[in-house]
């Protein structure tokens, strides 16, 4: 696959949210607004790129039997790093995303890419794969966030275009499932034509 292909495959062909359907918990929980979705996507991308790089470097020397625990420790290290950085520089973002920052450790996308791609490919390709899948994830979360914010609070990226509240259910739990369901239908309809 070409270098360009590695970066763009996350958008459509291997979109983590709509095609692979991985990492659903943060996708549903943090997309209450476009900004929150974007921030969660970027946080995941940070861990994805760094863990992909390190895992592709150490994969040849890690014994096969313990490779999953080793990968999890690498991922958990970068997540802890991310937690400390976010607490120091963007504490209010850390506060909003809350539990879902430490939970990047168990996000199946990160471990999935480590296992399926980074452990078998070169450092450069693994970094590009991390960027590609990361962009796909960030974009999906932002789109879901935009739809929920428009319907739920009548604004886009915090810019309000109607007076009063929107349909509050879309900001709350049911809206997350409904919006993801209908967006998936739309994606199927457009992508499989």
């Amino acid at each position: 696959m070409s270098k360009f292909g590695l970066i763009t495959k996350g958008l459509l062909k291997e979109n983590p949210t709509f095609v692979l359907v991985l990492g659903l918990c943060p996708t549903l929980a943090t997309t209450t607004s476009a900004m929150n979705g974007l921030e969660m996507g970027l946080a995941t991308m940070f861990v994805l790129i760094l863990s992909n790089i390190v895992i592709s470097l150490i994969a040849p020397v890690v014994p096969d039997k313990v490779h999953i625990p080793v990968y999890i420790v690498v991922i958990a290290t970068f997540v802890t790093l991310l937690q400390l950085l976010m607490q120091a520089y963007v504490p209010d973002v850390y506060e909003t995303l809350g539990l879902f920052i430490p939970l990047i450790v168990v996000n199946c996308i990160v471990l999935g890419r480590a296992e399926a791609f980074a452990s078998k490919n070169s450092v450069g390709d693994s970094a590009l794969d991390g960027i590609g899948i990361g962009i796909g994830f960030t974009l999906s979360l932002t789109v879901i966030g935009i739809v929920r914010e428009i319907l739920g609070s009548g604004s886009i990226f915090g810019w309000k275009f109607i007076a009063g509240d929107g349909v509050l259910a879309f900001v709350m739990a049911p809206g997350a499932f409904l919006v993801l369901g209908y967006l998936m239908v739309l994606f199927n309809k457009l992508a499989k034509r």
Binding site: V21, P174, G175, F177, L178, G181, Y182, M184
Partner: peptide, 10 residues
């Protein structure tokens, strides 16, 4: 999955 998500939503 899409119909599953909509069901969970309800």
């Amino acid at each position: 999955l899409p119909i599953a998500f909509i069901t969970v939503g309800i």
